[in-house]
Simulated assay, not measured.
Amino acid sequence: MNGDDVNEHGTDEDGATARANEILRTEAGSGVHGLAIAGVSDHDEAGVFIEPAEHVLGLAGPLDHHTWRDRPEGHRSQAGDRECTLYSLRKFLRLAIAGNPNLLLLLHAPEASVYHSTPLGDELRALGPAFLSRHAARRCIGYLDGQVAMLLGRGRQKDMPKRPELVAAHGYDTKFASHALRLGLQGLEMTEHARLTLPMPAGQRERVLAVKSGKVPGLDTVLAEITAVRDRIETLLDTGRTPLPAEPDTDRVSAWSVRAHLRHWDAAAPAA
């Protein structure tokens, strides 16, 4: 990000603090899934920073995340636009432990999509399997359902489809449809194999790209495919035929977080 970026959250000082304490940053969005379309897709990044001690133990107040965008809030991103969100480690861990599929990506991104990682960032990524659970798989279903609701015009007003050009061209919002199918396929991989492959495996990636680019005619066809994947996940979870543990390894993640904060603060402390 450069000096022309739009600061969407907090002050410039907050942004400088987040960047100075960054431990991990990776590609996010369609790029890390392998679903970016040249000349169409924007570029997303996400990362993690450790709040200075005064924001956690002192009176400076929490600094939970900071976002920069090329375009102001409320303006649709265009091809090549960039957006980066850095999350405090504490916020990131809370969301990832809760199964947020967008943040789990940072822990499973391929090396080519890792733009910055300190030793603590490497340790955080090594903890990736501790976050995968049946709870996380069900969160994927929840996110999938949200995309389908918006695809059908049933979402909250602010989340309603805003891509009339896609509806006019293909009869439905192909981007919402591709998000729903992608979430389903990734949730199914997680449920069947207790892993998350990025970029998506070739066959799955090609199918999602076909939906995204409008090559799958008819909303009913796409919805039937999404429903079949969703039902498969539900069946595996309901019958217990999954290698996933019921819950993430919260104790392990929490203990590492304490050590990581102390190590980071010790390294940042001025020499006596």
Rank of each mutant, 00 (worst) to 15 (best):
Leu103Lys: 11
Val56Phe: 04
Cys84Arg: 15
Tyr87Lys: 05
Gly153Phe: 00
His43Ile: 15
Glu27Gly: 14
Asp220Arg: 10
His135Asn: 15
Pro270His: 03
Ala177Tyr: 00
Asp159Trp: 15
His116Tyr: 12
Asn100Asp: 10
Leu63Asn: 01
Leu127Phe: 02
Leu127Asn: 08
Glu192Trp: 12
Val222His: 07
Leu59Lys: 01
Thr197Arg: 10
Asp145Met: 08
Lys215Ser: 10
His75Leu: 14
Arg163Val: 00
Ala96Asn: 04
Thr17Glu: 07
Ser254Gly: 12
Gly29Trp: 00
Phe176Ile: 01
Met190Trp: 05
Leu166Ala: 06
Pro248Met: 10
Asp4Val: 14
Glu45Asn: 11
Gly142Asn: 04
His170Gln: 04
Gln147Pro: 07
Ala46Asp: 11
Gly74Lys: 02
Gln157Phe: 15
Ala18Ile: 01
Thr11Lys: 03
Cys84Gln: 13
Ile23Gly: 03
Leu151Gly: 04
Ala267Ile: 01
Pro164Gly: 05
Glu54Leu: 08
Ala126Thr: 14
Glu165Ala: 09
Ala112Asp: 10
Pro129Ser: 08
Val253Thr: 09
Val167Ser: 08
Gly39His: 11
Gly80Glu: 06
Arg154Asp: 13
Arg230Glu: 13
Gly153Leu: 02
His55Ala: 03
Ala60Asp: 10
Ala109Ile: 07
Arg195Leu: 10
Leu104Ala: 04
Met150Cys: 14
Lys91Val: 10
Gly184Ser: 11
Asp14Tyr: 00
Pro62Asn: 14
Leu132Asn: 13
Pro270Asn: 04
Leu185Gln: 10
Asp70Gly: 08
Arg25Ala: 09
Arg94His: 15
Leu236Val: 04
Thr191Asp: 09
Leu181Lys: 03
Ile141Met: 09
His108Ile: 05
Arg138Met: 12
Glu165Ser: 12
Asp42Arg: 11
Asp173Val: 02
Ser77His: 14
Arg156Tyr: 12
Phe92Met: 07
Asp42Ile: 09
Arg182His: 04
His75Asn: 13
Gly80Pro: 03
Leu262Cys: 09
Leu86Lys: 05
Asp145Leu: 13
Leu244Ile: 04
Glu54Pro: 06
Ala180Leu: 00
Thr227Leu: 09
Met160Lys: 15
Leu223His: 03
Ala180Tyr: 01
His108Met: 07
Arg230Leu: 06
Leu223Asp: 00
Asp249Ile: 07
Leu223Thr: 00
Asp64Asn: 08
Gly142Phe: 05
Pro243Phe: 12
Asp4Gly: 14
Thr11Tyr: 00
Ser133Cys: 05
Leu223Val: 00
Asp64Ser: 09
Val167Asp: 06
Val167Pro: 00
Arg163Ile: 02
Val216Tyr: 05
Arg241Ala: 14
Val148Glu: 04
Asn21Pro: 07
Val258Leu: 13
Val229Ile: 07
Glu73Lys: 15
Thr26Arg: 01
Asp266Tyr: 13
Leu35Pro: 03
Ser88Met: 04
Gly171Leu: 02
Leu86Pro: 11
Ala38Glu: 13
Leu151Met: 06
Leu89Asn: 11
Asp251Lys: 15
Arg207Glu: 11
Ser213Val: 05
Ala169Trp: 04
Arg19Cys: 09
